[in-house]
Amino acid sequence: MTDPAAWAEHLRDEPPVLVTGAAGFIGMHVAERLLEAGLAVVGFDNVNDYYDVRLKRARLERLSGRPGFRFIEGDLADARALGAAFDAAGAPRRVIHLAAQAGVRHSLTNPGAYADSNLTGFLNVLEACRAAAPAHLVYASSSSVYGGNARLPLSPRDGVDHPVSLYAATKKANELMAHAYSHLYALPATGLRFFTVYGPWGRPDMAYWSFAEAIMAGRTLELYNMGEVSRDFTYVDDVVESLLRLAPLAPAPDPGFDRMNPDPARSWAPHRVYNIGRAEPAPVRALVAALEAELGRKAEVRLVPAQPGDVAATAADVADLERATGFVPQVTLAEGVRRFARWWTDWTVRAG
């Protein structure tokens, strides 16, 4: 049952879907798609000030106007607040965990925020799932877990033992923690390694947003690693489609798992990991060119050295995603930037 519409029909008599990070970029889009399909959603988020709170509140306004949505504000590190969200969802059968402290560079200066949200917070999610016993926990991981691995494309079967940022280390820790709970408590869990997600309602700390601001303000934008950077830019609608197609596919134990030659993407436990990417990496210079074309202005560019925690290139191997769901991300960088630029131009006018 890989068609989201069929999944929605199947879930109409179930408790609401619990979506953590509902005020976030991907979380809002996921919740919106679920609501559009006629499903009830309980959203959970702490609405922190890591970036403009007005943007987060505006996302929530889009959701709160739809029938079937209930929002609970609280912090992942507060087990009682998270428990209230689980209670509000009535022991949810589906938990989509997208809340986290994001950002590679922020982790260099505020490491405690990552311990609180991504480690303690994720442990609280797992403990709540242990008590509620949902049919499936889908949680956000990141392509950052691949760290120093330079063999492209990056495969879920590659090792992820050399993270180059604390953020990446917390995401790898999440995968290990989820696997342990899958093994110990038979919790079906799927980790999604997102590759550079972008699009409308996105995050101001991401390059595509800061580049747009710099271009329109006539400021010089910096290209790290002397401009020699490429990313597997993945449009948010493709990310949501991938997630919704995987969500009904709760993993089962693999009886053929070879413990003498373990596959990092599979397990004897009901736990799986997938890449979610466009599988067509592009140089960051191409992102700048696309923004220039859509915004109608040339960028002033300065080449600077690589920053701590950065990697030179990412590219996703999505063969497992395609085999499981019949879907791979479709939106080209040019089209995705066009949609983002139209939304962003409107948002900057409304936000002042």
Rank of each mutant, 00 (worst) to 15 (best):
A5C: 04
W7M: 10
L11H: 04
E14R: 09
V19L: 01
A23F: 06
G24L: 03
I26L: 13
G27K: 05
L39P: 01
L39N: 01
V42W: 04
F44C: 03
N46A: 11
D49A: 15
L55V: 12
K56T: 07
R57Q: 15
S64L: 14
F71D: 02
L76M: 04
D78C: 02
R80N: 07
I96G: 00
A100W: 09
L108Y: 07
T109P: 03
G112F: 12
Y114P: 07
D116W: 08
A128Q: 03
A131Y: 00
H136P: 01
L137H: 01
A140L: 06
V145N: 06
G147D: 09
R151E: 10
P156E: 12
P156A: 08
G159D: 06
S165Y: 03
K171N: 07
E175M: 06
L176P: 05
M177L: 15
H183G: 09
A186W: 06
A186F: 08
Y198P: 08
G199D: 10
P200N: 12
W209A: 13
F211R: 07
E213P: 05
M216R: 13
A217L: 10
A217I: 08
L223E: 11
G227P: 08
G227K: 08
E228A: 15
V236A: 11
L249V: 01
A250Y: 00
D254A: 05
N261D: 15
P270M: 01
N275C: 08
V284M: 14
A286W: 09
L287V: 10
A289F: 13
A293R: 10
L303W: 11
A306W: 07
A315L: 14
A315N: 13
A315C: 14
D317G: 05
L321S: 09
Q330L: 14
V331T: 15
V331H: 10
